[in-house]
Amino acid sequence: MDNKIKLTVSHAPFWHDGDSICKMNLHIMLAAMPAVIFGIVQFGMPALGVILLAVSSSMFFELIMNFATKRSLSTGDFDAALIGLLFGMMLPATTPWWVVVIGAFVAIVIGKQIYGGIGANPFNPVLVGVAILMVSWPGYFDSDAALLNYQFDFKALAPLAALKHQGVSAIDFFPIKTLIMGQQVGTIGTNFGLGLILGGIFLIIKGYIRWEITISYIAGIIITALIFNLSNSGSYAGPMFHLFSGYTLFGAIFLATENSSSPVNLIPMLIYGFLGGLMVILIRNLGAYPDGTVFAILLINLINPLIDYIRPKALGRGVNNA
């Protein structure tokens, strides 16, 4: 009798408040705007060009893939536009057009559409694009060389590269205040710490990103950097420097929180974020790359399905075939 109908309800990562994907993506883009506008003001028209090209070519490749896979058009949900925008923000303003287009192709086609489009990508598409470009043409990601022709009224050195090549003494060039205000050599949209934080708070209040991931990611950065710094302050920079330089804040707010490649339960989210922060610092302090954010977040994307098995026990009696 009691075997006839068994309605088994999974525990809840149910989370819906009537929003649409389109609305969510527009809000995330809005949250990114302060940093983007700051970048355009700081780096001028080339920055605007890179951003626009990244957005438009991403949408273009999305359309092409829609036709190729005979699916209904999906540019209307602005997911491709968002990927393009975030991708453009991670590039230096002087990136040549073909690098931007190839990166957008990789991000949309290899990072997203091949896996089945929105919601099915195991990795953050933006990072897939950026990682492949970084491996292929590291020269264009070397902000020092890329921005040689700019005149800045602050120390014209990329903070993390300076840390890597000159050691801890280099951080004296970069007071935390100037780092937060975006006065650092770097990419278009990831410098302006204050703007990113404002955007992040907005998104957290609106519920579009999960604060658990962002906060635990930042905690991971601070704790790991602090341990390194305390063990040997002569060779490792302090946590605040790491927090406000390079891609750190951008990664914590916009990249690690990407929906389909991050966990849904509380404990996994905390582990996921913390491991991300830990990996960033490990790569920065011990690895070969000046900034580890890109590879760190790809790595935590990789473990996401695994740690998401840590979930609350369902209420009631356990059912084997649930």
Binding site: I102, I110, I114, I132, V135, S136, W137
Partner: peptide, 18 residues
């Protein structure tokens, strides 16, 4: 032409084969 170094690295083999 600027070499697309990714292709001759190990991950490039996977993507290319795919």
């Amino acid at each position: 032409f600027e070499p697309f170094t990714f292709m001759v690295e190990a991950p490039g083999a996977f993507v290319c084969l795919g």
